[in-house]
């Protein structure tokens, strides 16, 4: 197991290098001068040149990239052009908010998704099954930013149940967490239903029924555990979806998280901040996927990690 984890981590090094390189290239293609953006349009050219020198922007590109990598390895992602704060600090200030949002929506989504999926499978072709599967498909078909706008409209402006933006109380998190969780819940429900249907046709379920177990015992004791294993994969695959979704959700609901920070960084051409956020997110992905694969091995003894 330890060997497996180590190997996976080593394999992720070239991936992270590639991610950094592509981001670096992309940022250098972005039109607009970050220094002008930082100092204002009317700064005299001599000062601009001086600032460029100080920031190392006059060095050859490979030197700049090498310096970024060397510092990143030591945990230093540089300083934001716009605020002058260390990028790592800005990320660490906002990341917990995003995690809180992502976890609360993941919680809502996993609970409702699995419950709906199981009921749909057990009562296959019933009204509940049809209705919830249509809703689930609608859930993965609706653009998240539109769901957010409609939710603000209905629950915030018309019913006045919940605040529509900001981040000052737990109540502020309800709407964004639900909006972010809709798509996630929908895909879990669809997946749970199909794996559950697979499992309840297996021989060992027939055996359990044949030996006279109550339906409840068959479903919760025998089918559930086996049906949920593949669902873990879907949850893992949605990590990226959650981060992407939080970008939009945070922007629309004005939540000071990493997603909103990344859009802010891009629109301000704050290169070190963008570069840092992308690398950080990629690391989160890599670790997230690794955790999913490890948990898979724990849940299903047949899976051997090599």
């Amino acid at each position: 197991m330890t060997g497996y984890i180590l190997r996976r981590l080593i394999f992720s090094v070239p991936v992270l290098f590639g991610v950094s390189l592509i981001t670096f290239i992309l940022l250098n293609v972005v039109p607009g001068d970050p220094v002008v953006e930082m100092m204002g349009k009317h700064t005299d050219p001599v000062t601009l040149e001086k600032v460029r020198d100080q920031l190392g922007l006059n060095d050859p590109l490979y030197v700049q990239f090498g310096r970024f990598l060397w510092n990143a390895i030591r945990g230093d992602l540089g300083k934001s052009f716009k605020t002058g704060q260390p990028v790592t600090k800005m990320i660490m200030d906002t990341f917990p908010t995003t995690v809180k949002l992502a976890l609360s929506s993941a919680f809502v989504a996993v609970v409702t998704g699995i419950a709906v999926g199981i009921i749909s499978a057990v009562k296959q072709y019933s009204f509940f099954d049809h209705a919830s599967m249509i809703l689930a498909l609608a859930g993965i078909s609706a653009p998240i930013f539109w769901v957010a706008v409609v939710a603000q409209l209905v629950f915030g402006l018309h019913l006045k149940w919940l605040p529509i933006s900001g981040y000052s109380s737990p109540k502020h998190m309800i709407l964004p967490a639900v909006v972010l969780g809709v798509r996630f819940a929908a895909s879990i429900a669809r997946y749970t239903r199909s794996t559950f249907l697979d499992v309840i046709r297996q021989d060992y379920i027939k055996t359990a029924r044949a030996k006279g177990l109550a339906e409840r015992a068959v479903i919760f004791g025998h089918a559930l555990k086996n049906a949920l294993i593949p669902v873990v994969t879907v949850i893992g695959m949605q990590i990226s979806g959650l981060l992407t979704g939080s970008l939009l959700t945070e922007t629309i609901f004005a939540i000071p998280g990493l997603g909103r920070l990344s859009i802010w960084a891009l629109s301000n051409r704050d290169f070190p901040l963008v570069q840092g956020i992308v690398l950080f997110t990629a690391v989160v992905f890599v670790i997230g996927n690794l955790l999913v694969d490890i948990s898979y091995a724990f849940l299903d003894p047949r899976v051997r990690l090599q």
Binding site: L16, G18, T244, L247, L266, A282, F285
Partner: peptide, 21 residues
């Protein structure tokens, strides 16, 4: 390996970056 790298990108952030560029 290129595919692996692209998979590790947060895709919306990548699209936004490309559109900016």
């Amino acid at each position: 390996r290129i595919a692996d790298i692209l998979f590790a990108f947060p895709d919306l952030l990548f699209y936004i970056g490309v559109m900016f560029a």
